[in-house]
Design a protein around this nucleic acid. Structure first.
Lengths: 150, 150
DNA sequence: GTATTACCGAGTCATTCGGTTAGGATTCTC
DNA sequence: GAGAATCCTAACCGAATGACTCGGTAATAC
């Protein structure tokens, strides 16, 4: 299970990706449109900025925008910043590896299965960009305009 | 991320599966061999029993054993009992569904991606039984005895 | 009937989650 | 350069959760 924090973060970045353009958007506006607590969202965006996923500008006309094109920001990156490793257990993680005290790495069958899970999850999240997630509505409209408008 | 509880539980059940036979095994013995805190493990096994994955017997020569053959107990079942739903968010869960307050189900792109993750995770964990996880060492030995003993 | 075990309820202690409060620093506009 | 708008930083807080422990009760075998 991921945290509320990750959810707010994902939704915020996705919104920035969807609206396109390179202007700065206010925290207040993002918070309102995503129904997230303003101050809390601020913290989250700051954290994402610190990790290079967002750019920000202070003062009047300030705000946040994506630091890179939406196609180059993945769900995996965002979630790792906000919630930590994807793997079910630390001993099955690549980015946040920590060995278990209570079993032998090379034998532990539980770990083996959890590694499979990690690979599957990372396979999806690291190959899904904001652009990918934002696209389907548009893509569908191009392919099947009737269906979408119906 | 799963909890320590789930890890202890998985390892305990896997041990019971691996040692085969239908005798009862003491909590104390499982705890020692898995390096789990005895009293805590007791709690965990009780919970698994309450959900029909284990049988127990009190008094002398008592203990725990699997309630069903290892091939009929999956990682998914165990984890759901001990840690709850597999999905990253409740709104993406089948077994523990709860709608989000803060977005529209049918549009939310984050939810769509999380549903993919859930499906992938459930696909693995619900189709991996204790027998599957216990088997590979044996299977490998049958297929490539030289490799394993080497 | 006594030793052995699983069972049960409650309690503890540290950490994390989900925020809020209070203010400081920067930038724009006039 | 004054003032407003905005991000930024740090500290704090209550409630929940995680990871256990303690002390006792009930069933079973011998």
């Amino acid at each position: 299970m991921l945290t509320q924090k990750a959810k707010y973060g994902l939704k915020a970045l996705l919104m920035l990706a969807q609206q396109g353009g390179n202007e700065f958007t206010l925290v207040a506006e993002i918070a309102e449109r995503q129904r997230a607590p303003r101050k809390y969202l601020e913290l989250i965006l700051l954290e994402l900025r610190k990790h290079g996923l967002l750019h920000s500008q202070r003062g009047k006309n300030g705000g946040f925008r994506l630091a890179r094109p939406p196609a180059e920001i993945t769900f995996g990156q965002i979630i790792r910043v906000l919630d930590g490793p994807l793997a079910p257990f630390p001993c099955a993680s690549l980015t946040g590896y920590r060995k278990c005290e209570d079993c032998d790495e090379h034998v532990c069958a539980v770990r083996k299965q959890m590694r499979r899970v990690r690979d599957a999850v990372a396979g999806i999240l690291d190959s899904t960009s904001l652009a990918d997630a934002a696209a389907p509505a548009l893509a569908a409209e191009v392919l099947e305009p009737a269906l979408v408008s119906a």
